[in-house]
Design a protein around this nucleic acid. Sequence first.
RNA 1: GGGGGAUUAGCUCAGCUGGCUAGAGCGCUUCCAUGGCAUGGAAGAGGUCAUCGGUUCGAAUCCGUUAUUCUCCA
Length: 867
Amino acid sequence: MMDSATIRQKFLQFFESKGHQIVPSAPLVLKNDPSLLFTNSGMVQFKDYFLGNSIPKYKRVVDTQKCLRVSGKHNDLEDVGLDTYHHTMFEMLGNWSFGDYFKKEAIGWAWELLTDVYQLPKDRLYVTVFGGDKADGLPVDDEAKDLWKQFVADDRILNGSKKDNFWEMGEAGPCGPCSEIHIDLRPESDVKKKPGRELVNSDHPQVVEIWNLVFIQFNRLASGTLEPLPDKHVDTGMGFERLCMAIQAKMSNYDTDVFRPLMDFIAQHAGTKYGADSKTDIAIRVMADHVRAVSFAIADGQLPSNTGAGYVIRRILRRAVRYGFSYLNFKEPFMYRLVPLLGIQLREVFPELHQQMEYVGRVMHEEEISFLRTLERGLKRIESIPTITGVQAFELYDTFGFPFDLTSLIARERGLAVDEKAFIVEMEKQKTRSKTAAVKETGDWILIGDEGKSEFIGYDHFSATSRIIKYRRVKQKSKEVFQFVLDKTPFYAESGGQVGDTGKLESINEKISVIDTKKENDLIIHFAETLPEKLDAEFYASVDEGKRKLTMNNHSATHLLHAALRQILGKHVEQKGSLVNEKILRFDFSHFAAMTEVEIYKVEAIVNQKVRENIRLNEQRDVPIEKAKGMGAMALFGEKYGEHVRVITFDPKFSVELCGGTHIPATGNIGLFKIVSESSVAAGVRRIEAVTAEGAQEYVNGSLALLNEIKTLLKNPKDTTSFLQNLLEEKHALEKRVETMNQEQANQIKDKLAAKAVKINGYTLILERITLPNVEALKNIAYGLRNQFEDLLLVLATDIDGKPQVAVMIGEKLETTKRFHAGNLVKELAKEIDGGGGGQPFYATAGGRNLGGLQTVLDKAKLLIKE
RNA sequence: GGGGGAUUAGCUCAGCUGGCUAGAGCGCUUCCAUGGCAUGGAAGAGGUCAUCGGUUCGAAUCCGUUAUUCUCCA
């Protein structure tokens, strides 16, 4: 039987033999694309070719692409694992033609590969072609149909709808008919009962689409009309896991050798077998599937977090932990143990995971621990709720992250049901709230003149004479911004951690501020709050040079820091994130322990040494990637590189990096490099923040000024630290002494009051007016007297710092008789001082505004007691 | 980006509708008992209740700010 690695290899080799270039998979996590969080199909990395934003290096390309789908028409995260054919992460095999071959070759090769190379049974294959669409004025795709007829009998070629057989990139843009290949994997007996053609496209788990051939031949305009493209493209995608199922003749993707090793490992450690029970089977599938998605996302640089793509990853991992926890009794972190298995399994195709197994495992382990803690807290909380309403279940989920299915499970164990409808209602409320807050209206691009190419000249110039190619308006929360694309621009768009440039666009009679510059795929977009009146004018575009130069200092310093860290800490240090602006540089990197002070000091010293050496920048553009790697430049995981890259070198023996950012001409510009903080961002990831040049100077001056101020205040002691320490200790001791003295003073007053006690009506009465320094003293006296007389009735009318305060205390024995209630008494008395009060049955206090009422308080107290 | 929580002793947390001299368990210190143990007993130390501001006679508790953190949604 052909194993999965061979199946993949044969695909790549087959198309290589047909003149295709094998290219690596793009990272799973996307950057610079506001419309998408993850690569969800093979074509994503080639989008710019179809849109005409950039020119392909090869006309024929083949690859296998890591894809992630957690939402969409047929795939919701909550469904994965319940059935046997949905996945979060999957591989998509694809071959591409960029303006080269078209339908004839694509169809012929597809058939050859499936039937010749893979030996799939011809009589079990069905194909669909586009059946035409009246609204678009398109006929049946007879071209494809006729081509298929060479290989496939007429009754196995089906016409498909626009929904299934017409592919579009978006509302507008490249599109075209497609042709799908389906396979019927049912047993012979079932096939006899019902022919496969009746089950195509009807969600049958054994009659599935395995390959989609897209023929991009139109461009849909914003108006909705179609125009033929001058260059026609082929974009195909074949689900790798399904293909394996078909070739290995399995009933499900999960039965192939792609998943089985993981599933057997899970089952073994759970003390069960896959296939033993439908509940545990689901849990095993969920874990096996999810660990792939999470591992590769982390390997591609996406840490679990509480927003955006990171949150999706967190949710996937938590879902797996939840299933393991509930059905397989995994109460300790377990998912992370699957990482090495997966890394080794896919070492050849996706080396990024194998190379980072320890790092990925640590991050996952930490995330599992944190979720198990959340579960534990939730379980504790749920115990205190007797009956759980839908709203409460939602609160548990929304605020404390406690999953709904666990809540209803616990409720069921108590013989109760949770109102799921109410839960869903609350959930919907939450969703609409978020959606209305995030509403963003993006207008269509409006072209000014002819659409031309946009050129970035910011590596060499701070200004340019430019024209606007196109613009659009974007509205969010009543704030409106305009976005421009220029034919020539000196503005650096936010990328690789370096912030976007700000600056000005000036024409003869107008001046527009550019507030930010960002990338959308490869397009450089300038942001402004106003729209020029004369859009077709010539503009003098200039970036804020001061800000840019400070940013360049910080960016170059980041490279020096990276190299220094690898020298001091070791080669396991890899960039995991970076932020560079005019004020600060922030650098996240993989390292498994907090840095010691000595290490920080050494790293800082190396960087400053390199600054003083004033090493000249060596910037090389268009270096072939292999050559760049040969020079010692490290490629970052999760970063997408072209065939040619830009290499930034400060001393070939020290720092060589692939980088698109802007840099200073020589390291001396940095002046001074100062690390401000070292902290943790996640398990296995440390963060350093540092400042350079003016920023460093300000930082150092500020710290020294503060130190001097402190020293002066302390009258310049020899050893400031120990002096301060002594001072603090002394202060503490004095506070304690003051407290005991107050206590003593209160005791004296207490004794005087005790002497005035009179015994009447079976209790000891103390009724006095006194002056005290604070409420604490009053409390102390009252409690002191309570300890002294068990049948005490105390009413004190006090003047505390000019404010009247009344206290009533009742002795322990007297309290049990319930003759008096301190709280009620004090409430009555409080009226006399224009205040209010309360407390417990035996001790209560009241405050007020009217100091003059203190005497009346005592008189009234006498009356009340007699009653 | 939007919503909801949380922040109290070295650690894990109680403290209900404002007034219980701010508590528990573990840990720590000292003493006693035991050959040893995550041993038994006794005494004790340790808190600007995150921050700043407001309401109130009175705030750990109510309201707002900031910070940190957890969590859900986009």
